[in-house]
């Protein structure tokens, strides 16, 4: 058996099938398997469980943080929603008030317009009535005036003959009844020749 020293310094020319790059040397293969087996055992038993534990803890911590963040976000969203709801409500309220005011204004306007037109109608009617009344009065006054004038005139023309009460009364009656059936215009035309005649 060659000793370790000579083996270590052996010349490279030494012929060996194990110099082949693709022929696995059994010793190396076995050492490789054993080395892998030992390391696998250590990693699987002692290392990976601890790493996984920490990983899970960290995931939990991160998730906890995320939950917190989610909660904060949810809160913020809720606040935003509330604010928006309030805003919408306020807008609706404002709209409603505006609408109310508009319809109220329209109602007031309509009422005032109605009142104004009623007032106008009333005033017009009153004016009409007054005018009618005045005319009536004027007619009546005119009629008595005309009657008196006519009587005066007639009595002047006819003289004493009309002193007779009965006769005078008859003449007046007839005259008046004629006036009655005639228009005020005709009254004037009737009266005018009478005044002209004097």
């Amino acid at each position: 058996m060659p000793n370790a020293l000579t083996a270590a310094v052996r010349a490279p020319e030494a012929e060996s099938v194990w110099t082949s790059p693709i022929l696995p040397q059994p010793g190396e293969l076995i050492v490789g398997l054993i080395a892998f087996g030992i390391l696998y055992w250590v990693i699987a038993k002692l290392v990976v469980p601890r790493f996984e534990e920490t990983y899970a803890q960290r995931t939990a911590a991160i998730e906890g943080g995320m939950e917190q963040a989610e909660k904060a976000q949810a809160e913020a969203e809720a606040a935003l929603r509330e604010y928006q709801a309030q805003l919408a409500e306020a807008r609706a309220e404002a709209g409603r008030i505006r609408e109310e005011a508009r319809s109220e204004g329209a109602a007031i306007l309509a009422e005032m317009r109605e009142k104004a037109s009623a007032d106008a109608a009333r005033i017009t009617e009153a004016a009409h009535k007054q005018i009618t009344a005045e005319r009536q009065q004027a007619v009546i006054q005119l009629r008595s005036e005309v009657g008196r004038l006519a009587t005066d005139l007639a009595s002047r023309i006819v003289g004493e003959s009309l002193q007779d009460d009965a006769r005078q009364q008859r003449v007046i009656e007839r005259f008046l009844s004629e006036l009655e059936t005639a228009d005020p215009n005709q009254v004037r035309t009737v009266a005018t020749p009478a005044t002209e005649g004097s």
Binding site: A7, S16, W18, T19, Q25, G27
Partner: peptide
């Protein structure tokens, strides 16, 4: 050469 990669320290052959 490829012989560089064959470096037995103790023993020789298949189980060096």
């Amino acid at each position: 050469t490829t012989e560089f990669f064959w470096q037995p320290l103790v023993g020789d052959g298949a189980f060096a």
